[in-house]
Amino acid sequence: MLDDTDRRILRHLLADPEAANADLVERAGVTSASLWRRLEKLRAEGTIKATSARIDWRKLGYEVQVSLRFNLDKADPRAFDDFTAAARAVPEVTEIQTFLGSVDLRLSVIARDMAHWQQIYREKILTLPHVSDSDALMLVATIKETQEMPL
């Protein structure tokens, strides 16, 4: 269970993931030893999964982002596993999510431009196995994107 100090450390870490430990010590109001012990504990118990880089795909030339929603033909008991294995193999797929409800899975796909998207769609997406229905949503703008949580 997290206490107020753990929550304060996490809040400051989420606000500035690149902050030096000395800055976190000052902002969270803890000693260096306490910060180190708490961060190690949070990592060991899986509260902090990883420190990672967030890439702006547009800066790398990927101007198109599409969200694809799929329903699978569940007559084959391997449908889900076959589909996810094939989707994982598509380099332009940046995210795979599963759902309960009217949609089985969602893929996020990036492409350099519309011609590249069309190529990915025809050669890689349309060949995914066990698809009974799909829908595509093209990203126009991101209004809010955050990893912050109300801690």
Rank of each mutant, 00 (worst) to 15 (best):
E123Q: 13
L2V: 11
A79L: 08
E123W: 00
L24A: 08
P150I: 10
D104I: 01
R106F: 00
D135R: 07
L2R: 08
Q119Y: 03
D76T: 00
Q147Y: 11
Y62G: 04
N71Y: 00
A19T: 01
A53F: 11
A15P: 03
D76C: 07
D23G: 04
E148R: 11
W117N: 01
D81Y: 02
I143S: 02
L68T: 06
L105K: 01
F83Y: 06
T47N: 06
T5C: 01
L39H: 05
K49Y: 03
K144W: 08
D23H: 02
G61C: 06
D73A: 09
R7A: 09
T146I: 10
R69H: 14
E18K: 14
V93D: 04
A86W: 07
Q119K: 14
D113V: 03
L35Q: 07
D81N: 14
D4L: 14
D23M: 05
E18I: 11
T51R: 15
D104T: 03
K49R: 15
S108Y: 12
R38Q: 07
A33I: 13
H116K: 02
A53Y: 09
D3P: 01
I55F: 13
R37S: 13
K124G: 00
A53H: 11
G29I: 02
A79V: 03
D76A: 10
T146E: 13
E18L: 11
P150F: 09
T31G: 15
K144F: 10
T94H: 01
V131T: 08
G29D: 05
T47E: 13
D104S: 04
Q147W: 05
R54I: 12
A86L: 07
D76L: 03
Q97L: 12
L128T: 05
D82G: 02
D73R: 07
S32W: 04
Y62P: 03
W117G: 04
V64Y: 00
R8N: 11
A33G: 13
H116N: 11
T127W: 04
L72F: 04
P150V: 10
I110P: 00
E145H: 09
S108F: 10
V66C: 05
R112W: 02
K41W: 08
V25T: 12
E95H: 09
D4G: 05
M149L: 15
D81H: 10
K49V: 15
V30C: 13
R122Q: 14
L60Q: 09
S32T: 10
I143D: 02
A22S: 14
R122M: 11
L60R: 08
D81G: 13
L60M: 09
W36H: 15
I9Q: 01
R58S: 14
A75D: 12
I9N: 01
E92F: 00
W117F: 11
V64S: 00
S34L: 14
L107K: 08
T51H: 14
T31Y: 03
M149T: 13
